[in-house]
Design a protein around this nucleic acid. Structure first.
Lengths: 123, 123
DNA sequence: GGCACTCATGCGCGCATGCGCATATGACGG
DNA sequence: CCGTCATATGCGCATGCGCGCATGAGTGCC
């Protein structure tokens, strides 16, 4: 098994967390400190700090101290691009499921309908 | 928390597995049956089947029966593109680490503890 | 120095996940 | 039918992860 693949899985494992995705998404708009991230994501400060530590260990974000605050920023914007690609895949997936199950539903943004469970569609 | 983000994390969680990444990587070159995948990835057949089930449930691959065999194929090529982007991020990351402190690269096969942690570089 | 603020870390628990293994289902041929 | 090949599924165990909580560490202000 390729060594790179293992490392890649490591990175993906780090990304495979709603909270961390949310954090990265916020950081995509520019650097931010921990407290603000905690507030905006409605999570506790230690929790956010832990997630940031994970992201930092994986090399996805970088930290810089500014007074009392610590500002985090994305290391590589391609991470966001990759996430957006994934989001596109997901979107197409939901659209396809919607076509199969839903008669007429304009899939506008904010439509959080049924597809809680991915799949459920088999051939 | 955005619903989409949760689903995205679900997808990423599915991708965060070396074996599944390897499977997807093989499927990128065209459809393949379970036995062949098991052989090429040096994994047991039940194991591969389980991973394929996970990938199928996540909607990343699709299955089609052909006689006794079941051929699996990628649902969306963008998954591979996203993985490649991640690989690029990883590559840049390793390069940067190499520039900072690269007297040796002890990446011997079988030893998955060499670049085990991706960071260890702090400011 | 003492205090307030911001962030990081350690701990313990509950829960999900991956694996090997045995076995069930499904399909083709004789 | 029955044996065989190809695939899927159930089980049990060990491991890892996320979370809340309390606490430690670093910084600036008075």
């Amino acid at each position: 098994m390729d060594e790179i693949t293992i490392l890649q899985a490591e990175i993906l494992k780090v990304l495979a967390s709603p909270r961390r995705l949310e954090i990265l998404h916020r950081l995509a708009d520019g650097p931010m400190d921990v407290g603000r991230l905690a507030t905006e994501t409605h999570a506790s400060q230690p929790n956010v700090s832990q997630h940031l530590a994970v992201l930092r260990t994986a090399g996805l974000v970088e930290a810089e101290r500014d007074g009392r605050e610590v500002h985090y920023r994305l290391t590589d914007p391609d991470v966001i691009r990759a996430c957006d690609l994934m989001r596109g895949v997901l979107g197409r997936r939901l659209t396809r499921l919607g076509e199969l199950a839903a008669p007429v539903l304009p899939a506008k943004s904010g439509s959080r309908s049924a597809p809680r469970d991915l799949a459920t569609a088999r051939s």
